[in-house]
Simulated scan of single mutants.
Amino acid sequence: MTLRDLLDNHVVVLDGALSTQLEDLGVDTSNALWGALALDTDTVAITRVHTAYFDAGAHVATTNTYQATVPGFLAAGYDDAAATRLIGRGGELALAAAQHHRSSGHGAEALAAGSIGPYGAYLADGSEYTGNYDLSVEQYREFHRPRIVALHDAGVRTFAVETQPRVDEVLAVLDELAALPQAEAWVSFQLRDPATLADGTPLTDAVTRVDAWASAHPGVVAAVGINCVAPELVAPALQAMRPLTDLPLLCYPNSGDTYDPVSKTWQTAESHDRFTAHVPEWVGLGARMIGGCCRTTPSDIGEITRRLAPTTP
């Protein structure tokens, strides 16, 4: 089953935050590799998170490879072979969780998607939220190629090109994916406001360029949209994207929780303020894939599933 197969029949439910859940299971994420270090230190916790999201109703488990890159592992003291092996392990864990979900009588609709975070995530300085870096197309391809190949070699065929602040980087990643058999991907941008990517590119320009690339390379891009944004940005962004492409739209925003810099604590959003309250509106605006990003939980994914039940064919 492919992502396109799912999209033919459903509003696809994505999973939610992975590192947040790993932290709740006692995994230390206070390092440059973030939750990706658990690929070496705690694979059981990763499997538990994937399973929790499938049990909550997600159709897709996203691999724990957003922050997992060969240069990142090298900087942490691993060698090339170990880095490649750990990235592949991320694919294997998600694929195994999907297979277990299918074989347990929950139906065939369980996929694994290989997370491809931006170059800025590897920098570990918040650059994925600014796009304040500038590589050549070939440099982007050389950076992303080992992770893409390792995931593909592990059996992953669906990729999440996510939290992307720059369209030039996205197109370079898509060029890499186009060279691999059976690879498909969704593209998801990070925004500074409803109309603008994190690096200042108009969202309309970015979506138009992805749509043109997809038309020239049929079968690779399955959907386009936004993630890791405040919930209030989603509706206007969907409205801006819808006239520009026939690709299915997607959104997986942050929870809606707010951070208090004085107390250095998070304030959990009440149910009526939480992002899940807006799911029916987003479906009405054309979203065909919906999940959660930072500080979202299996409970949130379960709520998305419940809210989608009346609208799912």
Results as ranks from 00 to 15, higher is better:
R166W: 01
Q190A: 15
A68W: 01
T258G: 08
L22R: 00
T20M: 06
V224H: 01
L39D: 01
G256S: 10
L203T: 10
A198T: 08
D168G: 01
F73R: 03
F54D: 00
D125S: 12
A277E: 12
V283S: 03
A309V: 10
A178M: 08
A222Y: 04
H278C: 07
T65D: 01
L74R: 15
A214S: 15
G302F: 11
N132D: 15
V13M: 02
Q267L: 11
I304T: 02
V279I: 15
T268P: 05
D168V: 13
E138T: 10
I87A: 02
I46L: 14
D260F: 02
V13S: 00
T311G: 03
T63M: 04
A75C: 02
A98H: 04
P248W: 05
H278E: 13
V224R: 01
F275N: 04
G225D: 04
A240D: 00
L93A: 05
D125Y: 06
R102S: 06
A45E: 05
T47C: 12
T296H: 09
E176Q: 08
L6M: 10
Q99N: 13
V229R: 02
A68N: 05
V44E: 13
E184I: 00
E169A: 08
F275S: 03
T297Y: 11
G72K: 01
R145K: 13
T296V: 07
V11D: 03
A235T: 12
V173E: 00
Q139H: 12
Y252T: 09
L22A: 04
A240N: 11
P218T: 15
A198F: 06
E303V: 03
A178V: 14
Q164L: 12
L33P: 00
W282V: 06
L3F: 12
T163M: 06
S271V: 13
T47S: 15
A185L: 07
T258Q: 10
G219M: 08
A214R: 10
T41P: 05
R4Y: 10
V220Y: 11
V221N: 05
A94S: 12
V279L: 07
G91Q: 08
L250C: 11
L3V: 13
D153R: 15
P181K: 09
V224Q: 00
G88E: 00
A277K: 09
H59D: 12
R306T: 15
A240L: 14
G91P: 03
T69N: 04
P218I: 08
A172R: 07
Y119G: 03
L95T: 02
A216S: 14
C251V: 14
E92W: 06
L7K: 09
R242T: 12
G256E: 05
Y78T: 02
G291P: 08
S263M: 04
W34M: 07
T276S: 02
E232H: 14
Y66I: 02
R209S: 11
A52G: 11
E184T: 13
D5W: 09
D193E: 14
L177T: 04
L25G: 01
A287W: 08
Y119R: 04
I116N: 03
V170N: 02
A160E: 03
A58N: 06
L95H: 03
G72T: 07
A206Y: 08
A81F: 10
C293K: 05
D55M: 09
H106K: 14
A198N: 11
G284P: 05
I290H: 10
P253F: 05
I301N: 11
T268F: 14
G219I: 09
A76E: 10
V161G: 10
G291L: 01
I304V: 13
